[in-house]
Computed example of a mutant assay.
Amino acid sequence: MNAKAVDYSRIAQSPQFKALMAKKKRFLVPTSLFFFAYYFTLPLLTSYTTVLNAPAFGSVSWAWIFAFSQFIMTWALCILYSRKSSEYDKMIEDITSSNE
């Protein structure tokens, strides 16, 4: 096999790679913090308050609405990341092609 050795330490020190990591961090840290805050709000509110016990409509309480909204929030974040990842993939292609 005629595989070319990749110098990962040189890639890791490149300004393009550092820009990629900074861009991903600017997206992932706030998104992750939002996800965890939203996720842990339901168990905290249901354990320590009665605010979600009120009926939203019929016999469905706000706790059920909030629980269902977590699925929607997770799907939305996954779709958002999938769209953002195409930018990251382009940056990765540029980094690897410039370091060959």
Rank of each mutant, 00 (worst) to 15 (best):
residue 100 E to T: 03
residue 70 Q to E: 15
residue 47 S to T: 12
residue 46 T to Q: 07
residue 23 K to E: 12
residue 80 L to P: 01
residue 28 L to G: 06
residue 16 Q to A: 07
residue 61 S to K: 07
residue 61 S to R: 09
residue 26 R to N: 06
residue 58 G to H: 05
residue 70 Q to C: 14
residue 70 Q to N: 15
residue 53 N to L: 07
residue 48 Y to D: 09
residue 98 S to Y: 04
residue 56 A to D: 00
residue 46 T to G: 05
residue 50 T to I: 03
residue 30 P to F: 00
residue 10 R to Y: 03
residue 99 N to P: 01
residue 69 S to M: 15
residue 17 F to L: 03
residue 65 I to F: 13
residue 54 A to H: 07
residue 81 Y to Q: 10
residue 23 K to M: 07
residue 81 Y to F: 14
residue 43 P to E: 12
residue 57 F to W: 09
residue 66 F to G: 08
residue 31 T to V: 06
residue 6 V to H: 02
residue 20 L to V: 05
residue 23 K to V: 02
residue 25 K to T: 05
residue 3 A to G: 06
residue 21 M to D: 10
residue 8 Y to A: 06
residue 25 K to H: 00
residue 87 E to F: 08
residue 46 T to L: 09
residue 56 A to P: 00
residue 45 L to F: 09
residue 55 P to F: 02
residue 84 K to A: 04
residue 63 A to S: 06
residue 5 A to L: 11
residue 14 S to W: 00
residue 90 K to Q: 13
residue 66 F to D: 13
residue 86 S to R: 14
residue 13 Q to Y: 12
residue 3 A to Y: 09
residue 68 F to W: 12
residue 31 T to L: 05
residue 81 Y to K: 07
residue 46 T to F: 05
residue 85 S to G: 05
residue 37 A to S: 13
residue 86 S to Y: 13
residue 58 G to E: 05
residue 43 P to M: 07
residue 50 T to A: 06
residue 22 A to L: 11
residue 16 Q to N: 09
residue 74 T to W: 13
residue 18 K to E: 08
residue 55 P to M: 02
residue 91 M to W: 10
residue 93 E to C: 12
residue 65 I to N: 11
residue 48 Y to A: 11
residue 64 W to S: 15
residue 78 C to G: 14
residue 38 Y to C: 04
residue 15 P to L: 03
residue 92 I to Q: 07
residue 64 W to T: 15
residue 82 S to P: 00
residue 77 L to F: 10
residue 7 D to A: 05
residue 11 I to P: 03
residue 10 R to N: 10
residue 33 L to Q: 06
residue 42 L to M: 11
residue 95 I to R: 01
residue 7 D to Y: 01
residue 32 S to W: 08
residue 45 L to E: 04
residue 20 L to C: 07
residue 69 S to H: 13
residue 36 F to W: 10
residue 25 K to P: 00
residue 5 A to H: 06
residue 56 A to N: 00
residue 51 V to W: 15
residue 60 V to N: 09
residue 94 D to N: 12
residue 37 A to R: 02
residue 42 L to C: 09
residue 95 I to M: 02
residue 83 R to Q: 09
residue 40 F to N: 07
residue 47 S to G: 11
residue 86 S to N: 14
residue 36 F to Y: 09
residue 34 F to M: 00
residue 8 Y to I: 05
residue 95 I to H: 01
residue 1 M to R: 14
residue 57 F to G: 01
residue 36 F to K: 02
residue 68 F to N: 12
residue 66 F to K: 14
residue 25 K to Q: 04
residue 76 A to L: 12
residue 16 Q to W: 00
residue 92 I to E: 12
residue 32 S to M: 11
residue 89 D to M: 10
residue 29 V to H: 05
residue 4 K to F: 02
residue 7 D to E: 06
residue 31 T to M: 09
residue 78 C to A: 13
residue 97 S to P: 03
residue 92 I to F: 10
residue 36 F to I: 08
residue 88 Y to G: 04
residue 37 A to L: 12
residue 65 I to R: 11
residue 26 R to P: 00
